[in-house]
Amino acid sequence: MNKIIVYEHEDFKGLSKEFIADVPDLRSVDFGDCISSLKVIGQPWLGFHDPNYQGTVHAYEEGEHKHISMSNHISSLQLVTEDLEHPQITVYEHRNYEGASKVITEEINLTYGYFNDKASSHVVQKGAWLLYEHGNRGGWYYIAREGSKLPNYGPVFHFNDKCSHMYPLKGGRPTVTTKILWDCRKVESERDVVIDEINGINTTDFEQTFTTSSSRVYESVTSHSFRLKVPSLRIDESFNLSIDPKTNLTVEKGSIDSTVTIDKVEVTMPANIPPHSELCIQVIMKLITASTPVELIMTKNGKPKTEYGEYRSVSGRNIITKYTVKPIELKKNIQSQ
């Protein structure tokens, strides 16, 4: 949801109102010329000095703005609806898109290059741009929006040969929903690991009850991890991947999250040892490595985009016992005596 919450006083105090659509005249909703702080969720908003989106304008990106430069001077609000994912603007040295040109796709400080204070016209291919009078986002700025063409900077806002910094507005954080495709789970490997071994020897002529213990408790361990199918895919925000009611992975930008869950498993070992026999009880953990595709739906400005990741687990939850009985060679011992 794209919305703006505006407040009467600084630091989000006083009366407040919430908007999800353009407001051409804030006086019509009894909130004209009184905004002193605001919060933006989703796409950026534009605040205008005059009604009907006229006069001085300031852009507000997603976040909390405790203090604003246009305090008590905003009369209309407009949501930026452009797709801000892949911004592009072409600036020209002369009027009417003539002379040398420069295609820009990211924030740039023109004072570091050869195009500083040279632009006289532009065409916006994608996104919404702030064109600053000075470097480092300094001075007055003009907002250039997608599809707009300005053939002459001079008479419009006396900006000819004065542009020194260009900044593309950023869209809000996407909402990420996940779905683990359990039906597509693939077992990569299985192996048995002996985690305990218990021995009992019966040298009598009678069957003996195994008395070391009737049961033991062991820890079963499962490791969980997640990775993106496309390593270069940029995830700007963290999201949770719910494995089960007890287990969640937190996936963040630039990190591969992993976690380990530990359970207690009680193994019952009732057994009798035959006469002149040795009993060996092996406690075996079955380790299963499996991978499962994960569908990621990233929604930004109402536009969903589907990507895929992979959830992997190495699970040792299955614990079993294996019994082996072998006779004791007492006859050889007697002969040797």
Rank of each mutant, 00 (worst) to 15 (best):
V187P: 02
I195W: 00
I284W: 03
R227A: 13
T212G: 02
P231H: 10
N240Y: 11
K179A: 09
S258R: 05
A271M: 11
S238H: 08
A271V: 09
T222D: 05
F226N: 02
V251C: 14
H276S: 15
F226S: 03
V193S: 14
K229H: 08
T177K: 07
R191C: 09
T261C: 00
T250H: 12
E266T: 14
Y218D: 03
I284D: 00
R191D: 08
L249H: 07
T268G: 13
E207L: 08
C280M: 08
I195A: 10
I273G: 03
K253R: 14
D257C: 15
D257I: 02
D257T: 15
S238G: 11
E190N: 12
S291G: 09
K179T: 12
G200Q: 08
F206S: 14
V265H: 06
N248I: 14
I262G: 05
S291F: 06
C280Q: 09
R216E: 06
P231K: 12
C280S: 10
T209H: 12
E207K: 12
S258F: 07
M285C: 13
D205H: 14
D183Y: 01
V230W: 01
C184W: 01
D244M: 01
T247D: 00
V217C: 08
E237C: 11
D244V: 00
Y218M: 02
I273C: 00
I273K: 02
D183K: 09
S277G: 01
I273Y: 02
E237I: 11
P275F: 07
N199S: 11
D263G: 08
I273Q: 00
I180N: 02
K246P: 02
V187G: 05
S238A: 11
S291C: 07
T177V: 11
E219D: 15
I281A: 04
D205I: 13
S225P: 06
I284Y: 02
K229R: 12
F210Q: 01
S213R: 15
K264W: 03
R227F: 11
V194T: 12
N272H: 08
S225F: 06
N202G: 11
V260R: 10
I195S: 09
T250E: 15
V194R: 11
Y218G: 04
P245H: 01
E219W: 02
E188Y: 07
I235R: 06
I284K: 04
I281M: 03
E278T: 10
S189H: 02
R216A: 10
V221D: 07
M269N: 00
I288F: 06
K186G: 04
T292R: 01
R227E: 13
R234D: 15
V260H: 01
R191M: 09
K229M: 12
L181D: 09
T177F: 00
T250I: 15
T211G: 02
N199K: 13
M269F: 01
Y218S: 01
I256W: 13
V194C: 10
K286M: 00
N240T: 10
R191A: 06
N248M: 14
D192H: 12
P275S: 03
E188S: 11
N240K: 12
I201F: 15
H276F: 09
D236S: 10
D257Q: 12
S242E: 13
I201D: 15
T178G: 03
F226V: 05
N272G: 00
L249R: 07
K286P: 00
